[in-house]
Design a protein around this nucleic acid. Structure first.
Lengths: 321, 321
DNA sequence: TTGTACGCGTTATCAC
DNA sequence: GTGATAACGCGTACAA
């Protein structure tokens, strides 16, 4: 490996001069600088990140921790994070799994965005206490080293339920995500509130898991109990897709017998027959805000918790009753 | 930050003893080892990755470089890579974009899997020449430091075309990916060969881009030229989905007037009406093999180029004619 | 069994 | 303007 020492030898100067030249320190003369840059180029010099990090105590890299790489859900989010990070001179790496958690305390990155319930609250708080900078997208957590960038689930849940009620529905199912999911908890709280506020609606809760199979299961349960047209608020589109699948080829028609609204506005929802009503938000924007806040946190700029806004997408999967 | 120096002081031993103890060197006594481990625990000691890397010249991290985070395509692949890497004591990080290319030569990772045509061949060869270990999934590249793990596109292209011909089709369109795509090139070559071998089939090529809009465009072109039932081999499912979308609500029926087969067996293809015929392979296995070969390469074990096998999935999007 | 000393590649603080 | 030199935290050959 070629180091600044090699360049120094080749160029006939000292290593400190090389360092100055490479870092654009104005102390070094035009002539020697050019000479040094030429030699560096010639030798294919690449700075050693480990050495620099050891000295500088920063990597200019931020990480994003996901529970899993599967599912199409996070592409736009990561893209948004990446673009914002790059714009601010940082690189982004994506990690997944408990194994990779070590990279944060080992200081392989200057901070991280957390979207992974496998990361325990106490763990994160401990990291924050040790001076690590964090942005959480999946929980509420109070610490000076942590900033929250959360979806406006309350608004989303309310929008969905109000829409169903506005369409005349009197019997509403909600299909939740996993108990541990912050987003699911918030959506449920909002849905309950919106339903109570109305007063006359019959509400049933089905506990799901944010995946297709639990959507299938929900649909089967609903069909088994079926007596009259019902509306279903699936806490994500993935489960709604599962419901579509289960209802395919049965006598129940979506948007007539069983009305469905989802959450996320995933790409597939546009290709379903009928189109799926859902709650929309910009994943990309979410990611960009997360990266922005994280980097501000790292650079000791003032930051605040942020909320990502959502909106209603009406579609034929919800009819009038 | 707490370092081994702090532990040494606290435990009343020298730093080398601490280092030995932490690394399980048998030279150090049971008693002092336990004492040291206790102190380390108490002080919340975490080894500094930069310092260790600087010394050891390895990070135990491998990277995967993608063109973009968008699209649902790579989830399973990355999961497969991650699991295999973890099994072998490595961590995986995912990177995207030209900016992040620096991480490879700067030795932030011990090697990388490349799935990004933005990485130029010469660039990769240069890295390999400097001793970096690479696995390429998206091109052929010969170098002792590079191993190829490629999809068996030839088999896929042949399977698809033979299936169409077997179903009696005499007029076949192929909708390609971008010119630069290795996979697309290989699929086209195989398709051409299979068609020539048959002799009596009329072949039309439409140049696409692997995305939905180009599927839509292809469908429109085909409808404009329509005189008799045709079969279409879309070089990926994404474009096939675009075709479905464009044909929706027209007088053309998929599987009767226009027959479609895709490639990739993406999740959505199962939810289309009618189900999409396609070429299947295990993304997860692909990823696992890639990680395995990369780590073997890093550890100087013998490696060979690998091929990932594919299979045909028949479905109603292709009818008999 | 434990301690001393050195080097990994950088940057930064001094002299000169 | 340039050059020694001391860190940064860790691992290890060698000495004790």
């Amino acid at each position: 490996m070629v180091s600044i020492k090699d360049i120094a030898k080749q160029a006939g100067v000292s290593i400190s001069t090389v360092s100055y030249a490479l870092n654009g320190n104005p102390k070094v003369t035009e002539g020697t600088r050019n000479k040094i840059l030429a030699v560096a180029e010639e030798l294919n010099y690449v700075p050693n990140a480990a050495a620099r990090t050891l000295k500088m105590r920063e990597t200019k890299i931020i990480g994003a921790f996901l529970t899993s790489f599967q599912g199409s859900f996070y592409g736009e989010l990561l893209q948004g994070m990446k673009e914002e990070a790059n714009k601010r001179g940082y690189d982004l790496v994506i990690c997944s799994g408990k194994q990779s958690h070590r990279m944060l305390p080992e200081r392989l990155m200057d901070g991280a965005v957390i979207l992974d319930r496998q990361f325990a609250d106490e763990q994160l708080l401990q990291y924050a206490k040790r001076g690590h900078k964090l942005v959480v997208l999946d929980r509420e957590l109070q610490h000076p080293g942590i900033v929250q960038v959360l979806l406006d689930n309350k608004a989303g849940g309310t929008l969905a339920i109000d829409y169903l009620i506005r369409q005349g529905h009197k019997k509403i199912y909600t299909v939740t995500g996993p108990m541990a999911s912050y987003d699911s908890q918030q959506r449920l709280a909002a849905a309950k509130l919106a339903i109570e506020r109305n007063g006359t609606v019959e509400h049933h809760i089905i506990y799901g898991n944010f995946d297709k199979p639990s959507g299938v299961a929900a649909a089967e349960k609903i069909m088994a109990e079926y007596t009259e047209p019902v509306a279903v608020f699936c806490f994500n589109d993935e489960m709604a897709v599962g419901m579509y699948r289960a209802l395919q080829g049965t006598t129940y028609t979506i948007g007539k017998d069983i009305h469905i609204i989802g959450f996320d506005h995933i790409d597939v929802s546009r290709y379903l027959q009928p189109k799926l009503a859902t709650i929309d938000y910009s994943e990309r924007h979410w990611g960009a805000v997360a990266a922005e806040q994280l980097i501000k946190l790292i650079q000791e700029e003032p930051v605040e918790n942020e909320r990502i806004y959502v909106s209603l997408v009406e579609a034929d999967s919800v009819g009038v009753v």
